[in-house]
Design a protein around this nucleic acid. Structure first.
Lengths: 236, 236
DNA sequence: CGATCGATTGAGCCCTCTCAAGAGAGGTGG
DNA sequence: CCACCTCTCTTGAGAGGGCTCAATCGATCG
């Protein structure tokens, strides 16, 4: 088994405040796994055998409802943890994690978590911060869905994706992984038809440039304006 | 300063796995505070000077948007923690906590958190579990808002409130604190008008019984049916 | 007993969904 | 290398759920 390079992970939030020797010890227990595009890291309902750190690529976490509808929970960027079910008291994964690009993850057996946490309590406090900020983000999403129109929500979603995983290209900022209209619909609680119409409109106005599973923000600032504009005068 | 009775808090999730002596030591640093009905425990944006455990009463956590709209984040029941901003890496409270009933909280200075966590690492793992389950609940809410109609969402919300804070009364289960149509609207992402119409309808059908800031579920099972019924055939 | 706050109810509209086709892009196998 | 097939995206037409606007009523409180 090849050793994992410490420098790759030393700066991740999960390992903040760790000494190199500690990091080595922890990494010794991890395996590096390559997940091909469209492969699953884990599936909703499955026994939570491992937890992960994404090293490379992009992963979509999604849940299916009883009625069979899919909702995208979030997109995972390199450096983030995923599948930390045990840490938050779950024995099964609450969502399905799908690689949207060829990806590489570090995997630890879930069984190791309690022992690691006991030995390195910072793991718990660091994870607490991570889960806390995800809670904040999810609350923001609830608030958006409660108070904003579809157009604003979609603009926000694209801006967030661009900030998180944007790549500078000649004519703007491109979202750095394949994403379909359907995916955006499942992130914003709409239908792919509405997203298609919306993006077509924006494209005509020169705000974006889009193709098959590809979106470039040409005028991010204009999108910010759109995202923040209230339907009509609301603020006192 | 009166000593706080250990037995009151020994069973709370936050203190799971603590020895009585440890509990005593932690409680020594807490103050007990009475918050009158409609009083604030803390306000959104304010410096996070303390964190709390609710001992008695009910507290509503809500956020205001830039546009000035309120959204109810959750209702806090006795035994739950609130205001743990520092633990999740925030220096200001992300929401406002209002007592909806005369309430009593235990308060610790936020400054004590890092020291307490270092000495009692279980505080971190216990809080991690709590924050994790709140994250799950918030995800459920996003999913409901994405896939369900208002009627289903409201039914779910009432059932959840009843499960969390229901009191058995002669003709059903009463939600054990004052709650207005407006509050329910802010929990479910609708308007008080829609809620009023909906509840009026349910009342006529004998499902519930309601008055000013008061709701009794007469036929919880019927509400479950309502909550789970898809608008039209959706599941494969 | 007036004033304030919560609840009710009607009318009309509009944003978004549903239903329905069809076109374009990419991948694959012969 | 071409033909086919699948997946993604586009676009139109129509309907409807829930919102907005508006007015009134009832209850609680000082």
């Amino acid at each position: 088994m090849a050793t994992i390079d410490t420098s790759l992970v030393a700066k991740l939030p999960l390992f903040a405040g760790f000494a190199p020797a500690e990091l080595d010890a922890i990494l010794l227990e991890a395996r590096s796994i390559r997940i091909p595009k469209n492969g699953k890291v884990f599936e909703q309902g499955e026994d939570a055998h491992s937890f992960y750190v994404l090293l490379h690529g992009h992963v979509r976490a999604s849940k299916v409802t009883l009625a069979g509808e899919q909702v995208v929970v979030r997109y995972v960027s390199p450096g983030e943890t995923l599948g930390v079910a045990m840490a938050i008291g779950l024995s099964r994964y609450p969502a399905t994690a799908t690689a949207v690009d060829d990806s590489i993850v570090l995997a630890w057996p879930t069984a190791a978590w309690p022992r690691l946490v006991e030995r390195y309590p910072s793991l718990a406090t660091n994870t607490l911060r991570t889960v806390g900020s995800r809670l904040q983000e999810t609350h923001s999403r609830v608030i958006e869905m409660s108070t904003q129109q579809v157009e604003q929500r979609v603009a926000h979603a694209l801006l967030r994706l661009a900030k998180q995983s944007g790549r500078q290209v000649d004519n703007g900022v491109q979202i750095d992984f394949p994403i379909s209209r359907q995916d955006i619909a499942q992130m914003t609680g709409t239908t792919l038809h509405t997203i298609s119409r919306l993006l077509s409109g924006w494209e005509q106005r020169g705000l974006i440039e889009s193709g098959r599973q590809k979106i470039v923000l040409r005028e991010p600032h204009q999108l910010v304006v759109l995202a923040e504009q209230a339907p009509e005068g609301k603020a006192p």
